[in-house]
Amino acid sequence: MDKRVLLIEDEPNIIEAIRFILARDGWRVDTHADGTTAFDRVAETRPDIVILDVMLPGRSGFDILRDIRADAGLGGLPVLMLTAKGQVKDRDLAERMGASRFMAKPFSNTEVLASVRELTGA
């Protein structure tokens, strides 16, 4: 096992919650809070899955997603998108841009865990 998740999220309490849920399930969780450097972090850590918040300081989650999808080496990386806006058009946009899954906050812990497992084929 020992799969790695990169959580890109800026709310400290939410980071803490997700880290706890996934760590409990045996995931290794890296976190990153800044939008501008998020893509570099993805490229650098090469996780099995990225959990990506839409509203990030410095850069939008959608932009980061686009970069990931455009990158030859990272193109197929599963990305679970989280958003607190939860509007239909955000979901559409996320799917169009190639998000593997889109979840609105507040999410259910089990759902997050199930999605991560499913997307990584674990």
């Binding site: 709310e11 939410i14 919650a17 997700i18 607190a84 939860g86 999410f107 812990n109």
Partner: peptide, 10 residues
């Protein structure tokens, strides 16, 4: 949603 997320998760 942001605070509610934390509340729900915890």
């Amino acid at each position: 949603r942001t605070p509610m997320t934390s509340i729900r998760a915890f």
